[in-house]
Design a protein around this nucleic acid. Structure first.
Length: 409
RNA sequence: GGAGAGGUUCCCGAGUGGUUAAAGGGAGCAGACUGUAAAUCUGCCGGCUCAGCCUUCGGAGGUUCAAAUCCUCCCCUCUCCA
């Protein structure tokens, strides 16, 4: 089996490593590694996809991944890469989120038979005795050195509370703890975690005299330098009830040309020869590569069946017969009474979820961005009624890409 | 604890009594162009029962015909001093 380190290198996962040569050697043999996930929301979003993919690669290569849910650290708040102090969550919220995270990770990683582990650092952090912690752990940290860390330096400008300042110690403790209890010798994470990862490796060296390692991934931005994962509707979630597989598929197909090859490497398991080949496509052919990316990414997250649906739906809605076969679009049903009476177009656009407010719907339609069955809506108060139904439904479109099918209840 | 600075619409950031739903930029949306891409140009960008009305400038009161702008108290942040 190929060393995962080469796979990571080849596919563009690596930003920094504590020692490339040693990490590569380490990964010659089955190794336990971990990545922390913050339980700040009830679902992960595409921002966490890169770490997840790395764990999948690890598992496929015969290593043992640990998904660490930051139940304990979530009670504190991580300053890394944030300019504002984050909201501190209650224990209840965190546990709820932690549960949900576990479920999501299981879609990507096989947790059976100890092939992977899910851990929650609340289990060992919440009961830490303060004095002992200071004595045994705190003494190994130099404040001078911590302040030199980029993540803290930035926060020094805007203010940094003591509890946040301790985050690094806690995460370092996590790494040591996982090393101690699971023989975990590699921590991975986004490049914003570099300082924290180093701290953990450092702590373990001091406490145990053992050298353990860290690896970071590039922070993902699109070619235009914007953080990934935001759309008109907000964050792109991995949970199908928050972001539908169709929207998820669409998210990927709408990526910039310049990102496609990189994303194929990171977010699919296609062989790299194929990825490079797809990346070489020029002009409109690039769409093929995007379709592959969208399909593969959706398949990984939501399964083949959903991916097939999403692809079909997209092909119908964006193919040569667009507007003709709207079964594929997300559906919203409306009461018969309302339809009989006729409903103003802008209200329908708002109700169907295409616009967040009625004002937005008015604006959209006034600017010529509202369509019904492929026809531009002329005025926002235009009444939509039963006569507009074609084969029992009508197709609403906002702008060029966003569709909703309206059916009668 | 003392002294000073500051909290403005999604973000950054102007505004220091009426002409301010609040400059400018970013993000976002729409139109044109296109390949469900990018770039570019144009328009939009608090809400609503929308030629009008309502709600916003940390919070609560007050002055005034009129306040984001003035006063009082409170909350929070930053800087310096201890």
């Amino acid at each position: 089996m190929k060393n995962v380190f080469h796979i990571f290198e080849d596919r563009g996962f690596i930003e920094q490593a504590t020692d490339r040569e040693l990490v590569r050697e380490l990964l010659e043999n089955p190794t336990t590694c971990y990545i922390g996930f913050d339980p700040t929301a009830k679902s992960l979003h595409v921002g966490s996809l890169l770490p997840i993919m790395s764990l999948v690669h690890m598992q496929r290569a015969g290593h043992r991944p640990i998904g660490l849910v930051g139940g304990g650290t979530g009670l504190v708040g991580d300053p890394s890469g944030k300019t504002e102090m984050r909201n501190i969550l209650t224990l209840g919220e965190i546990n709820e989120n932690a549960e949900a995270l576990k479920k999501q990770l299981s879609r990507f990683i096989d947790f059976s038979d100890g092939k992977a582990i899910i851990a929650n650092n609340a289990d060992w952090l919440t009961d830490l005795p303060y004095i002992e912690f200071l004595r045994d752990i705190g003494r190994h940290f130099s404040v001078n050195r911590m302040l030199a860390a980029e993540s803290y330096r930035a926060r020094l400008e805007t203010g940094l509370s003591f509890i946040e300042f301790n985050y690094m110690l806690l995460q370092a403790y996590d790494f040591w703890y996982l090393f101690k209890h699971y023989d975990c010798r590699l921590q991975m994470g986004g490049n914003d975690q570099w300082g924290n990862i180093l701290a953990g490796a450092d702590l373990t060296r001091r406490l145990e005299g053992e050298v353990i390692h860290g690896l970071t991934f590039p922070l993902l931005t699109t070619s235009s330098g914007i953080k990934m994962g935001k759309t008109h509707k907000g964050a792109v979630w991995l949970d199908a009830s928050l972001t539908s597989p169709y929207d998820y598929y669409q998210y990927w197909i709408n990526q910039d040309d310049g990102d496609v090859e990189r994303f194929l490497g990171l977010f699919t398991f296609l062989p790299m020869e194929e990825v490079r080949q797809l990346g070489r496509l020029k002009g409109a052919d690039m769409r093929t590569a995007k379709e592959v990316l969208a399909y593969e990414a959706t398949k990984l997250c939501h399964g083949q069946k959903e991916a097939d649906h999403a692809r079909e739906a997209s092909q119908q809605l964006f193919g040569p017969d667009r507007e003709k076969s709207p079964e594929a679009a997300p559906t919203y049903s409306i009461g018969q009474e309302e339809l009989d009476q006729g409903i103003p177009a802008y209200i329908l656009f708002e109700k169907s979820g295409l616009c967040k407010t009625r004002s937005e719907a008015r604006r959209l339609i006034s600017q010529g961005g509202g369509y019904i069955n492929g026809q531009r809506v002329k005025t926002f108060e235009q009444a939509i009624n039963i006569n507009d139904l074609q084969q029992d439904c009508l197709l609403l479109r906002a702008g060029k890409k966003r569709y909703v099918r309206i059916t009668q209840e």
